[in-house]
């Protein structure tokens, strides 16, 4: 593929990604994800007592999710009050994560997920889903698998992966997707824009390919974070033994 994008990427290339775990002290679980210029921070609290209590369910934990953009995250200042878009995305992100969870394990509790977009550069909902899934794992909440998320889209008649802000604003179609690693099922799927059936197939396959790559980075991040102390311990024990 000879096509090069405005930032020099190939159509099927992700932006550089950074992930970190346990970045917040007070949260039960937290994660930070950077994808190109998009920066998101997620905290998970719970399972904990539900307030107000009438929301609690004897059948399992409820999940509350808030997607929110910082006022300074966009070119023009964003009003900090939740917009219609943010309220919709909060619901969509919650529904992207729910299929990965065992809610019946924690009746009468809530799991609260707070996703803050610190800098918006396209693909914020996907970065949030990716980060939420890591933060849930960091909180020690059992999951059926990790949820990795990535968008594909159509920009200048070309189907491409992981749109940046410029591509996102000028795109003909945007297709955010989230993927559950263990079952391979799609847990988030939205389309905004015009695609023929063939283009849709191509874009969905591309987005899923992106999700798999993001999953590998998620996995590596988790392994590094949780295995590193164990490795240190092993090497320390090893040194003790050799003395």
């Amino acid at each position: 593929m000879g096509y090069r994008r405005i930032d020099g990427r190939a159509p099927d290339e992700l932006r550089p990604i950074k992930m970190a775990l346990g970045v917040l002290d007070k949260a039960d679980g937290s994660a930070y994800v950077e994808q190109g210029g998009t920066k998101v921070l997620v905290a998970v609290y719970g399972p904990r007592e539900v307030h107000p209590r009438h929301l609690a369910s004897p059948e399992g934990s409820i999940i509350r999710c808030r997607y929110h953009m910082a006022p300074f995250s966009t070119q023009e200042r964003k009003n900090p009050a939740p917009s219609r878009r943010e309220i919709e995305l909060s619901k969509v992100i919650r529904q992207a994560l729910t299929p990965a969870m065992f809610l019946e394990l924690y009746p009468r509790t809530t799991i609260d997920i707070f996703a803050e977009v610190l800098q918006a550069d396209g693909g914020t909902r996907c970065a949030c889903v990716t980060a939420c899934s890591l933060a849930l794992a960091d909180a020690g909440i059992p999951l059926k698998g990790l949820v990795a998320s990535c968008a594909a889209g159509k920009y200048q008649d070309q189907i491409m992966l992981d749109l940046n802000d410029v591509e996102d604003k000028g795109c003909q179609a945007d297709l955010p997707v989230a993927w559950l690693s263990t079952t391979g099922e799609i847990t988030l799927l939205q389309l905004n824009g015009l695609l023929t059936e063939d283009e849709f197939r191509e874009a969905l396959s591309l987005a899923l390919k992106g999700c798999r790559q993001i999953y590998e980075i998620q996995r590596e991040t988790l392994m590094n974070y949780y295995m590193a102390p164990a490795k240190e311990l092993v090497s320390e024990v090893g040194q003790e033994g050799s003395k």
């Binding site: 969509v92 529904q95 299929p99 559950l180 799609i186 799927l189 015009l194 849709f200």
Partner: peptide, 25 residues
């Protein structure tokens, strides 16, 4: 639309395999 182009998709609760998504289309 009337030319069978997709203009919007919204997944609600639950999850789908990609085969199920294509079948849904």
């Amino acid at each position: 639309d009337e030319q069978n182009r997709l203009c919007a998709i919204q997944k609600g609760p639950g999850s789908f395999t990609s085969e199920e998504v294509f079948k849904s289309v």
